[in-house]
Computed example of a mutant assay.
Amino acid sequence: MKNLLTAAMLALFSQASLAHTLWVMPSHFVLSGEDTWISVDVSAANMTFVADKGVSPDNLSLVFPDGSRHKFSQSYQGKRKSQADHQLVQEGTYLIENGGPARYFTMFEVNGERKRIMADKRAAAKELPAGATKVTTSRGQSKALAVVTVKAPNRTALDPKGDGFELNFITHPADYVAEDKIEWQLLMDGKPAAGVKVELSQQDELYRNAAGRQMLETDAAGKLAFTPTQAGRYLIEASYQSAEKTELADQSRATLTLTFEVGLP
């Protein structure tokens, strides 16, 4: 099978993904011109906004203010970071997303060797070889987000879809200002994701003796709040895990990052 991998290969991929945080960084967060362009850097790194590993831009997309999704008009993958450009022809709020829908993989054992099939429980049941044991299906999702607004903000591109791990922007990103409270809500399949640990970091930690990262946690309604004391660019990273079984998976794991900018008061 083309989508069958050994446990050793899976472990290698998992270590690579866990070692670095995926983020996107737009050149601008708020724009006032007409038919303006946006450039976006994409990287995976241990230190916030210090480019380390270039990431394929194949899964990078831009949701327009009218809700339509587009691929970037041009992109380039480098060794330390990748870059993409697109012309913003509509007035309103755009969502930049690197990632995609949830993916499923089924791990199993045959003659003592661990392998996997890229399929959910239903599909995997038709592909599993005879004698397969220790069968477990996982659902995984990883995406990096940023929001850009041209002139008047709107919310069409930001509306949660009720599918997978999502961020509900209670406070519109165009209104993030130092000394004002920012609120978000984390959702899993449209339901509040309670008790999710969220790490928050700020730009320029390379030049500080202490990184100054903060740990936040969603409440029973999946909400979290942060009041920035300084203007600048920030990153939040949220990780979700669940052992709840569904018709398609035995467990779920998802990560989400958001790059955002806080303006001067």
Rank of each mutant, 00 (worst) to 15 (best):
S75E: 11
E109F: 05
L186F: 11
A51K: 08
W184D: 05
G99V: 04
A8F: 15
M107S: 12
T149Q: 00
L224C: 06
N168K: 12
A225R: 09
Y104Q: 01
S201M: 10
A146P: 01
T93P: 02
P129G: 03
D41H: 15
E244A: 10
P265F: 07
W37T: 13
M118R: 08
A152E: 09
G131Q: 10
E199C: 12
M25Y: 07
M188Q: 09
T149A: 01
V30L: 07
A144E: 02
Q74K: 09
R208C: 09
L22G: 00
G92K: 02
F13I: 12
A193V: 06
D41P: 10
T149W: 00
F165I: 03
S73R: 11
V196H: 04
A132C: 06
L145E: 02
E109D: 12
L258E: 01
L95C: 07
L88Q: 02
T259G: 00
G164K: 02
A210D: 15
L224Y: 06
Y76H: 11
L10H: 13
L187M: 02
Q230A: 05
F226N: 08
E91P: 06
G99Q: 06
V196Y: 05
K79A: 13
K121G: 04
E183K: 11
W184T: 00
N209D: 12
L145K: 03
G131A: 12
A211L: 08
D58P: 06
Q202D: 13
F13W: 11
A210Q: 13
F72S: 05
F64G: 01
V135W: 11
A243D: 15
L158Y: 04
L216I: 04
V262A: 00
G78R: 09
E199P: 14
L167W: 09
P57T: 01
G222I: 00
G33Y: 07
A130L: 15
G100L: 06
Q241K: 13
V50H: 10
M118K: 09
L31K: 03
L60G: 01
T246W: 00
V63E: 06
Y234R: 03
E179N: 15
A152C: 08
A225C: 09
Q214L: 09
A254D: 06
D250A: 01
S56T: 04
S201L: 08
V24W: 00
G54S: 01
